[in-house]
């Protein structure tokens, strides 16, 4: 019975990882400036996702598994499946429409919904939800300010150094290369951060001190593969829409966008704080666009922000619905 539970949970984790992959917008700036085609971007993104999840996911998994709720969700398969299905539905639906939403938000929303429905206690303090709300509120602000200041600084330097089109093309080439380095860093850190959502409940099941490190990290590897496949099969829609619709990107502003969001996400991941990469990246897009005086598509921004707020609510309701439905089955 324990083996069947393990298999079901692993499958559910891979499906959720796939859903997260469908909504991974890390490569959007590279696609936006046409530095890479969508096809190349999703292939490189998939490879990075596998390595990033394998190397960086464990740290965040510990935080999520222990701090949010008193419910020990890893002990109840129905709960886990409800959370995973609701998250996967939210993410895949949004991806089909090309909208980037936060997987962390979807997961927290699902857990909160179930906690409410079951009448369990929610930890609102700094040790639980307070911590998460704080990082959600602060991350976009830091993303916006960071990218705005970086963009202003970059414009100042470039206006003094770039005299002609040849200089501009050299600047574009350098920014494009730096952008790719930043994308790799962001891909690693985001894979670590986002895959931890999918594998957090099954992660403890593989933590046998007598087993090899590779065995202990099987959940991360599976999560990375699922994420990569999601990116390849559906994720290109989000890359295209965020890369092209929110703000007009130049290689310089795309580099600034990526640099500020990658640094903030990486620092948060290393500190074990589950941040929303989506919020940071969207805020960085706006900050860089504002700093480079490019028109910002407020309609797209409003739709993304609206979905950021609606995601926890929708995923919470979905999780509760599936919980009661599945409880009848099991």
């Amino acid at each position: 019975m324990a083996d069947i539970v393990l298999i079901i949970m692993v499958i559910a984790s891979v499906i959720l990882s796939f859903a997260i992959g469908t909504n991974d917008e890390t490569f959007a700036p590279v696609v936006g400036v046409k530095r890479l085609s969508v096809k190349s971007a999703v292939i490189i993104g998939a490879i990075i996702a596998v390595f990033g999840a394998f190397l960086l996911a464990p740290k965040v998994s510990d935080t999520l598994n222990n701090d949010i709720s008193t419910i020990q969700i890893s002990n109840e398969i129905v709960l886990i499946i409800s959370v995973f299905i609701s998250m996967a539905i939210c993410l895949i639906l949004a991806s089909i429409f090309g909208l980037p939403i936060s997987s962390t938000e979807a997961m927290v929303g699902s857990i909160l919904g179930l906690t409410f429905a079951r009448g369990e206690k929610i930890i609102w303090g700094w040790e639980g939800m307070g911590h998460i709300f704080f990082t959600w509120a602060v991350s976009p602000i830091l993303g916006f300010i960071g990218s705005l200041l970086l963009m202003k600084l970059m414009n100042k330097i470039l206006s003094k150094t770039v005299k002609g089109l040849s200089g501009l093309e050299t600047s574009n080439a350098i920014s494009g290369s730096l952008l790719l380095i930043m994308v790799v860093i962001a891909g690693f850190s985001r894979a670590g951060n986002d895959i931890s959502n999918a594998i957090a409940p099954i992660y403890p099941l593989f933590q046998n001190p007598e087993a090899s490190i590779f065995y202990q990290r099987i959940p991360m590897l599976l999560g990375g593969v699922g994420l990569g496949l999601g990116l390849i099969i559906i994720g290109w829609r989000v890359l295209k829409s965020l890369g092209n619709d929110v703000v007009e990107l130049t290689p310089e502003s795309a580099f600034v966008t990526q640099a500020s969001s990658a640094l903030i996400t990486l620092i948060a991941t290393l500190l074990g704080i589950p941040v929303s990469g989506t919020m940071i990246l969207v805020a960085s897009f706006i900050g860089a666009g504002y700093g480079s005086k490019k028109p910002i598509n407020l309609k797209s921004v409003r739709t993304i922000v609206l979905f950021i707020f609606l995601t926890p609510l929708f995923s919470g309701l979905c999780a509760v619905a599936f919980y009661y439905l599945l409880r009848g089955v099991f």
Binding site: S37, S40, E169, T170, A173, G176, L180
Partner: peptide, 18 residues
């Protein structure tokens, strides 16, 4: 293809300029 996208662009730009 990826190589050309990453590294070939500047060479093309230079040839277009000339």
């Amino acid at each position: 293809m990826v190589y050309r996208e990453l590294l070939g662009r500047r060479l093309i730009d230079k040839k277009i300029e000339r």
